[in-house]
């Protein structure tokens, strides 16, 4: 069974979001997602300074098996990307919630967090289990 972090929010498309107290949020993909994709070989993050929109494509991950889009869980400006992933994409496999983070967004509208359909850890587990049926 894959690991799910209770303090994070999730998208049905398997991204996680960790909201910080400074109005920014980190984005990555869930343990379940990395396991399903297999070994990652390329991670294409958005550029620092670019703007991403909740629910729209922000990047791509390529595994040995397939390419998958990464969707932005919230809207805002990309203030940092995980440059380490260029050399070591396997960090997403080894530590999806830590070293495998992908980019950091400065939220343009914190109220989005309430209005968007972000899943709690519990709801995400239920969704994953439903998929595995």
């Amino acid at each position: 069974m894959s690991e799910i972090r209770p303090e994070l929010k999730y998208l049905v498309s398997h991204e996680w979001l960790r909201v910080e107290s400074d109005g920014t949020a980190f984005v990555g993909i869930s343990d379940h997602a990395q396991e399903a994709m297999g070994d990652l070989v390329f991670v294409e993050t958005p550029e620092v300074g670019s703007t991403v929109t909740a629910g729209e494509e922000a990047g791509v991950v390529e595994s040995v098996k397939a390419a998958s889009d990464i969707y932005a869980p919230v809207s805002g400006e990309v203030v940092a990307i995980n440059e380490e992933l260029e050399e070591t994409p396997e960090a997403v496999n080894n530590d999806p919630y830590g070293d495998g983070w992908m980019f950091q967004i400065k939220l343009s509208d914190p109220a989005e967090l309430e209005s968007l359909e972000l899943l709690s850890a519990e709801d995400y587990v239920a969704k994953v289990e439903e998929e595995d049926q």
Binding site: G38, D39, V64
Partner: peptide, 8 residues
């Protein structure tokens, strides 16, 4: 079996 952990 598709893999036993890491295909690479």
């Amino acid at each position: 079996p598709i893999n036993y952990g890491s295909q690479i």
